[in-house]
Design a binder for these strands. Structure first.
Lengths: 334, 334
DNA sequence: AAACTTTAGTCAAGCGCTTGTCTTAAATTA
DNA sequence: TAATTTAAGACAAGCGCTTGACTAAAGTTT
């Protein structure tokens, strides 16, 4: 089987503890023995058993990531950002995907606790109370990323209200007054809901009337954008602009508008959200709000590292700014 | 600190071994004690220490994934497929990203070995000899996914030559004879190179001349597709179709063609590769070869599971078929 | 009733490391 | 030169669990 400290110790003629210390760079041996130990270790192809080490040190150098869906570009990028920083600090990442299902989330929190991860990152759906309780009880350092609700937990995210506000305000400043919205699923306290909130606030602050039938719900996907836009086109209240809560839906909207024989942005302007690569593929290219997914992940991991090292269980929140990317799908009408 | 078997044992009045057996469902206790043990375990909020268990069972229920880049849709989907099946079999996934760097790959193979993962999935760049050696020496069950080179190791991938051949053949059957190619980076034995091979073979088998200057290299990204197409347009040998080795480049090509005042597919037909969501966003929608990324991941994990359970170190290879997705970017000219 | 099985446990070793304490010989100091 | 410090290492316990071997009492068989 695998070679152990004992094997090295015997071959060199010292005890395990000496070998352990030397291999860990604790200076407790003569140059000679050190050399010998390193040499024998290399000869034997020694590969330390991190499991055994973890058992005594109570550190696994592993952090758990509970995430909704890896196949989703957005989450994949967040994960990517997390992984980079984790790796920088010498941590491995174990990833569990939940599809946003509460029971899966619960299950994985438990599992990761059994694995004794040093910390936990939560980037799944809206965090249910049950999860929060379990997390807090487990005492695992945790930070929540990319989700709005995290009362007792430190978290990093974007300000969906503010960023949506910015998108809609941009439309308003371009002279639009009949602005529709294609929202994502508007579940309470999730990004979809906050984006609607931002839309309404922008209208309100600019003395524009909020018409509920101009808000039609999609599911963030392209096809749903097409459907939603078609519905909007039927209602037709002379809208001149639409704010889509995702780029996929934005592109869908553009396609629907064009199919209806109208022109973007000449007849209707469209603005999206995410700055997905898809926004560059559409014709015209989609003006959008760019989210800092990678940075979100990086910041979250940096934060988690601090929590692990210093244990300040403060429910600290940080917001990362987005950027308005102007392209060709919005036209000024003043 | 955390509650252990010992704590439960003491409170119930039995030994640790009894508690362990009961909690693991090994029937070695009376109904009464069993009930009591479960009750006390729940009361105390017992959460088994998988580290300690792993130390003795030599199983971590963890598999390692070495992958090139999570932010890349393609790999993210492969990873997603892997995760699903891993989870089905009760394994966790620890992910390391390498950016295709050989030293990073080596480093992570070592790291994952230290963590005593039960198996390893390799989905990084072209696998260097050094990695293969290390992997084989480590004796960790390994399967390679989404990469063409894996001589001594079991692997699952698509047949890039064949699928590219199919794309080009489709163009030829539509009457095209002047077909250009926008290739990905053509590093030896990587997908980019194989796709070129498929392109050439298709031309060859159909008695069409291969002109090296009609193959221009991109890097799989959208912007490189635009650049490449512009170059092609300059050369201008009356090409009527182009095969792009990725959808991003395909969409880039379409944009370039349109910008040059020509029409797709009226003047030039374009076919892509991947079936990325981007292919649906472009105008016209891009005809392409659809890769089964998720399935690739799933199959690889299924395969790994078998290897772990049965240890047949056979260098088994499996190829998953792709699909030609016909949309509107290719026109028949006969 | 003696011999054998079962049941319900106990006991102890061991997985591969780390780490605090102790020991001995050499090096330094007064 | 005797006393003290330091260097180089040995010793042993322990992390939390699993598991094979053993035991004592109860139940079953003939």
């Amino acid at each position: 089987m695998a070679v152990t400290l004992k094997d090295i110790a015997e071959k060199v003629g010292v005890t395990e503890s000496t070998v352990s210390r030397v291999l860990n760079g604790i200076p407790k041996a003569s140059e000679k023995t050190q050399k010998k130990i390193f040499k024998v270790a290399a000869e034997l192809g020694y590969n330390p058993n991190q499991i055994a080490r973890s058992l005594v040190t109570k550190e696994t150098k592993t952090i758990g990531l509970i995430i909704s869906d890896l196949a989703n570009t957005y989450f994949a990028r967040v994960a990517s950002g997390i992984e980079k920083i984790a790796s920088k600090y010498g941590y491995s990442l174990v990833i569990s995907t939940t599809g946003g299902q509460e029971n899966a989330e619960l299950k994985y929190i438990n599992l990761l606790q059994e694995k004794r991860v040093d910390g936990l990152l939560f980037a799944s759906g809206k965090m249910p109370v049950s999860c929060r309780k379990l997390l807090i009880k487990s005492e695992i350092p945790t930070v929540v990323v990319a989700r709005e609700v995290a009362e007792e937990l430190p978290s990093v995210h974007i300000d969906n209200v503010k960023e949506s506000y910015r998108a809609v305000e941009y439309l308003i400043k371009a002279g639009h007054t009949k602005i529709a919205m294609i929202s994502g699923s508007a579940v309470d306290k999730e990004s979809g809901a906050y984006r609607i909130q931002g839309y309404k606030k922008a209208l309100n602050d600019n003395n524009l009337e909020i018409k509920e039938d101009l808000i039609v719900e999609g599911n963030f996907k392209l096809a749903s954008g097409i459907r939603a836009m078609n519905k909007l086109l039927q209602i037709n209240k002379n809208i001149t602009a639409v704010f889509a809560a995702s780029d996929e839906m934005g592109v869908g909207a553009i396609k629907a508008i064009k199919k209806a024989g109208l022109k973007v942005p000449h007849d209707i302007s469209v603005i999206g959200f995410d700055n997905n690569i898809i926004s560059l593929a559409s014709e015209p290219e989609l003006t959008t709000i760019s989210q800092p997914e990678e940075k979100l992940g990086q910041q979250a991991m940096e934060m988690l590292y601090k929590v692990i090292k210093e244990q300040p269980l403060t429910a600290h929140k940080i917001y990362l700014p987005c950027q308005l990317i102007k392209r060709n799908s919005v036209q000024s009408i003043i």
